[in-house]
Simulated assay, not measured.
Amino acid sequence: MRFQGRVVVVTGGASGQGEATCRLFAAEGAQVVVADWNADGAARVARDIGGAPFAVDVAKESEVAAMIDFACTRFGRLDVLFNNAGVGHSATGQFRMASIVDTPEDAWDSIIAINLKGQAMGCKHAIPRMVAGGGGAIINNASIMAIAGVPGADAYTAAKGGVVALTRVLAVDWGAKGVRVNCICPGTIATPMVGNLIEDPEARQRLGESTPMKRIGDSDEIARVAVFLASSDASYINGAIIPVDGGWSAL
């Protein structure tokens, strides 16, 4: 129960890595705001864990600000923000490879707005509340593509690379004020975003075989890292960029 009496906001909390993290924080005693643009999904997860749902489009600063206000008004404080919400390269949110020459401007704008701006706005509005409360922890969710050269998915890679850089500068800016900012870089994780890539058993096996551990990851493995980084067990970890990829980036 490391988070008894603590308040946590998780974006993209209705499915995948976000849902798994909401459930683990709640199991550790936290009051969890399950934030997602899928209002029904957020309500379902919140109902299961005794949390509070909040419908949000993280590409809109006004909605992100309202999300942080909601958490502080509802529970009286804010201790942890997991900036997890993100989309792949298509309007459905699923991942699709595409080079920059094949990426329409509106797709580029949407991916940058959700995957990078959304996290920046979360930090912008969470940090003052955390400083006022004596400190806190922010975990940004990037991608292994942010630190390794993978052909294609150029807009996605650019956005996630921005998340890594944002994490570093915020850690430097706010560490002395008690706000730790760290970043997770997942490899291939079995989530709805990559469902189209792993639904074929042979394709799933090929992706798994590309890692030293010979399998793809699951959402719980990301959740455990996020919860650790938010906990007092990670009290001297700040500005870290942590691959969670089965060793793929070590190849």
Rank of each mutant, 00 (worst) to 15 (best):
A203H: 12
I242N: 12
I139D: 09
G208A: 08
C183F: 07
V34Q: 12
F95V: 00
A43R: 14
L81Y: 06
T11C: 06
I112K: 03
M130W: 06
G162A: 02
G50R: 12
Y156W: 07
I147F: 05
R215K: 14
A203Q: 14
R168C: 05
P104M: 03
N182D: 15
H125R: 08
H89I: 00
D245W: 04
G29R: 05
A113C: 02
V9F: 01
V32A: 11
W174Q: 14
V34G: 11
V64E: 04
A226S: 12
M213T: 12
A234H: 10
A55F: 01
G88R: 01
G134S: 12
I100F: 12
A71F: 09
G135L: 11
W174L: 05
G247V: 07
C183I: 07
I112M: 11
V227N: 09
I241W: 09
Q119K: 10
E105P: 00
H89V: 00
G246F: 03
A158E: 00
R96I: 13
I241D: 12
V9W: 00
Y236A: 07
R74W: 07
D233R: 04
F54T: 11
V34P: 05
G217P: 07
V87W: 00
N83M: 03
C185F: 07
A203N: 11
V80I: 15
A113Q: 03
I144Y: 03
V101N: 11
N141L: 14
T21C: 03
L197Q: 15
A66G: 08
S235Q: 09
N141W: 00
V9T: 06
T211H: 09
R47Q: 14
V225K: 03
A85N: 02
F82Q: 05
S110H: 08
F25Y: 15
V8E: 02
T157M: 08
V8A: 12
G88V: 02
I114F: 04
A153L: 02
A35G: 13
E209M: 11
A66S: 14
R77G: 13
F228V: 10
G247R: 06
F70S: 14
R96Y: 00
L251R: 13
H89T: 14
A153Y: 05
I68Q: 04
S90F: 00
A159P: 01
